[in-house]
């Protein structure tokens, strides 16, 4: 079940990505509507992070292409923000929280220009949004995992983009932080920004996202959550993993979709 939309904010066309000649993503073809909060869901090794990285030109595609806002990434970088996995950097690096968030402004600054007062104000504002303004001067090695995650989120917010890619923003954060982050993301989607999130926890998919990509090397499904997050399609994506499947069918039986309907889909 792959639903395509008119005037997509992101279009991935026949994308195949391989590592050492072994395909990790196979013939991915999808479109996403503007203003959606998208969850990329699938088992370990399904290629969820790779899909984001390939769209952002961080890993080369064997074939196919991605268009953002109908254009190549190189022409629209200022409208695209990225939040990598927390583990991708060295947190003992000599930097303060504010230093890291200011990096979100670098792309807008251009060559040879230093961040100005206005950029600092944006950075402080983004720290306030994630509840970290009191930590601005803190050395990053002194942060807990959840705080590091929030700093990375603030850095992505500081890019003031229209399309956000986030690689497991909820990994290793406590319940309160997770709730705060998803609140922010939903707020952004309401402002017609598009947020694409690699997500691990099936339990919360229905509550969090209004569009879901089910991925397992190939694209199993893409569409509004209530149409995609079904027992049948999940079985197809997670095929063979029995314990998980029972969990999933319990989830579906619990009828969690009811809560979802209220938010409705904003396309």
């Amino acid at each position: 079940m792959i639903k395509h939309v008119e005037n997509p904010v992101l279009e991935v066309h026949d994308l195949t990505v391989s590592y050492a000649r072994k395909p990790v993503l196979w013939d991915i073809d999808l479109t996403l509507p503007q203003g959606s909060l998208v969850g990329i869901v699938g088992p370990n090794g399904a290629g969820k992070s790779t899909l984001i990285k390939s769209i952002l030109d961080l890993v080369p595609a064997s074939s196919g292409y991605s268009k953002l806002f109908g254009d190549d990434l190189a022409n629209v970088r200022r409208r695209v923000a990225y939040m990598p996995q927390r583990e991708s950097v060295d947190w003992d690096f000599p930097a303060s929280v504010l230093d890291v968030v200011l990096m979100g402004r670098y792309g807008k600054l251009g060559l040879f220009k230093r961040p100005r007062k206005a950029d600092r104000e944006v950075a402080h504002e983004c720290l306030r949004k994630v509840g970290m303004e009191a930590f601005a001067k803190r050395q990053i090695s002194q942060l807990s995992g959840g705080q590091q995650q929030r700093v990375f989120l603030a850095r992505a917010l500081a890019q003031e983009a229209d399309l956000y890619f986030m690689d497991e923003p909820f990994a290793g954060v406590d319940a309160a932080t997770e709730k705060a982050i998803i609140g922010l993301l939903q707020e952004m989607a309401e402002q017609n920004k598009t947020v694409v999130v690699v997500h691990h926890d099936l339990q919360s998919v229905v509550q969090y996202f209004n569009w879901v990509l089910l991925l397992n090397m190939r694209l199993v499904a893409s569409g509004p959550t209530e149409q995609v997050f079904t027992n049948e399609l999940l079985q197809e994506a997670y095929g063979g993993k029995l314990t998980l499947l029972t969990e999933v069918s319990e989830l579906v039986q619990k009828g969690q979709f009811a809560a979802r309907e209220k938010q409705g889909y904003r396309g």
Binding site: D57, L58, S88, F93, D99, M103, G104, Y106, G107
Partner: peptide
């Protein structure tokens, strides 16, 4: 700032166009 960012987080630097 270019050297600082490419040292701390090269893939992020790539995404913002450095």
């Amino acid at each position: 700032k270019e050297l600082y960012l490419t040292t701390f987080d090269p893939s992020y630097a790539g995404v913002v166009g450095i």
